[in-house]
Amino acid sequence: MDVLSNRDTWMHRLEIARATGRPFRGGDDGVVAQVVRDLAQEWTGPPLVLELTEPDGQWRLGDGEPVARVRTSAIDYLWHLSGRPGEPHLEGDPAAVEALLAARVVF
């Protein structure tokens, strides 16, 4: 409940902001960190550095020396991880981008 309640509320605030054309003020970097931590625990793709903006942060996914670096918007990527439609713009190694696009995290 502590995890999904926060994520669900965060995501619904994002949905409302997008539906009304208002800017999204996340205000809770902890949700982003929590989601990326869960992604890292289940990660089976190539080792990489995931660089997020809005809020800014860098995370290492996978075991071993990173073979790629991928940059994207945290808001857009969490939207995608939750299974909502649309594809975020990811910059970086094509194999790493493909693995990141295939990933999902429970919201």
Rank of each mutant, 00 (worst) to 15 (best):
E42V: 10
I75A: 15
D63K: 06
L39Q: 02
Y77D: 12
E54W: 05
R60P: 01
L39V: 01
Q58V: 12
P47V: 02
Q41N: 13
G64D: 08
Q58P: 00
V49Y: 07
R60S: 12
P55V: 09
A68D: 04
G45Y: 01
Y77G: 10
P46G: 05
L61P: 02
L78R: 08
W59S: 04
W43L: 00
G57S: 11
W59G: 01
V67M: 09
P47H: 08
A74L: 14
W59H: 09
V70C: 13
E65A: 13
L39I: 03
W59M: 05
T44F: 00
I75L: 15
V49K: 09
P66A: 04
P47L: 08
G62W: 03
D76Q: 14
Q41V: 10
E51L: 12
S73F: 13
D63Y: 04
D76P: 03
P46L: 12
I75Y: 11
Q58W: 05
E65L: 12
L48I: 01
A40T: 02
T44S: 08
R69F: 04
P55W: 06
V67F: 02
V67A: 10
A68G: 04
D76F: 12
E51R: 14
E54Q: 14
T53N: 11
G62C: 03
P47D: 06
E65W: 05
L50P: 02
Q58F: 02
P55L: 08
V49F: 09
G64K: 07
E42M: 14
P47G: 03
T44I: 05
L52I: 04
D56M: 11
V49H: 08
G57M: 07
E65D: 14
L61I: 06
Q58N: 09
L48H: 01
T53C: 06
L48R: 00
L39T: 00
A68W: 03
R71E: 08
E54H: 14
V70T: 10
Q41M: 13
A68H: 06
V70G: 02
